[in-house]
Amino acid sequence: MTRIMVPNGDGTTGWFDDERLREEFTETSVWDGNNWRGVCSGMQIKSAELLLTAEGRWVLHEDSSSEFNGPDSYRWLTDDEARVWLMKSGTGNRGPADEALEAVERLWPDVPEESGPSEGGRPAVGPAISVAYPEDLLQRIDAAAAKEETSRAAWLQTAAREKLAGSHRPCTAAEADEPGSGSGG
């Protein structure tokens, strides 16, 4: 067992056994006009490695000791950081690019084919639903929303939260029987 020490970022140190790795990926390289350089690390002589530990944690290993007289370093990566590293490594034209891209498809099967800037609009707050309201009730909702200077959707969300939290009084039988309420006669 070889314990490799990795700083946790909070002043403590974690470790993993480099003899029990689940997977190991070497970054690919790209020609910069003068040298082959790692697409993720930019290193020329050595390549960075992405390691998946036996416990399922991602570790980035960069050994720049022979290149910049720098450190032989390890650091933890999140799943998203590891996925991005593999996707970027898959763009190189020297080294195991196909292996990196196949790993992304295998380890993150739900990654969309495309991701980019939003086409505009508001961020989603939940799944959209379609609800039919009687016209007179919808007019009352719109009037109440306008009075509170908010949108119809925001007003309905607030009303639903208040009702579920119990801060709204139950409707009376007379209110339930109002035309268009859908619950009375």
Rank of each mutant, 00 (worst) to 15 (best):
Y74L: 06
A145E: 07
A174D: 14
N34W: 04
A145G: 07
M5L: 10
W85P: 07
T78E: 13
R169M: 05
R83F: 01
S89C: 15
S73A: 15
T91E: 14
W58D: 05
E113F: 01
E55V: 01
N93L: 06
D136Q: 14
A124T: 14
A154P: 02
A97D: 08
G184T: 11
G116L: 01
S183P: 00
E27Q: 06
L137D: 06
V111D: 09
S118W: 03
A100D: 08
S118N: 11
T53V: 07
H168P: 00
V131N: 07
A128Y: 09
A146M: 09
G70N: 08
P7W: 04
A146D: 15
A145Y: 02
R152G: 13
R106S: 13
A174I: 14
A173E: 15
S64N: 11
L156K: 02
L52M: 13
G182K: 02
P123T: 07
E99A: 14
S118E: 12
R83Y: 02
S115R: 11
A173P: 04
S47L: 00
G42W: 08
I45Q: 06
Q139D: 14
L86T: 04
N69Q: 12
A146P: 02
T53N: 05
V59S: 00
E178D: 08
V30D: 10
E62D: 13
T2G: 11
S47R: 13
L164V: 13
M5N: 04
V30S: 14
P134Q: 13
E119I: 08
P109W: 03
Q139I: 14
D177N: 08
E62Q: 14
G11L: 12
M1N: 05
Q157H: 10
T2N: 12
V30F: 08
N34E: 15
G70P: 11
G92V: 04
G38R: 00
I4A: 06
L156I: 14
I129V: 15
P7H: 02
A48M: 00
V6C: 04
G9I: 10
A144P: 12
D79M: 02
R122F: 09
V39H: 06
G70V: 05
V131F: 06
R3G: 09
W15C: 09
L60W: 04
P179T: 06
Y74N: 11
M1H: 08
S89P: 06
P170C: 00
R122W: 08
A153S: 15
I45M: 03
H61V: 01
L51G: 00
K88L: 13
E23M: 05
G182T: 03
E67R: 10
V104T: 08
N69H: 11
L137C: 11
A159E: 12
N35C: 12
L51D: 02
A159R: 10
E62S: 13
A103F: 01
R20D: 11
N34A: 13
D79C: 02
T78K: 07
S89K: 03
V39F: 02
G116T: 12
D177A: 13
G126C: 13
V104Q: 02
G9S: 11
D136K: 10
P112C: 04
T91N: 05
F68W: 15
T26Q: 14
D63G: 06
G38T: 09
E114V: 05
A143M: 05
S118K: 04
K46S: 15
E24W: 00
V104C: 09
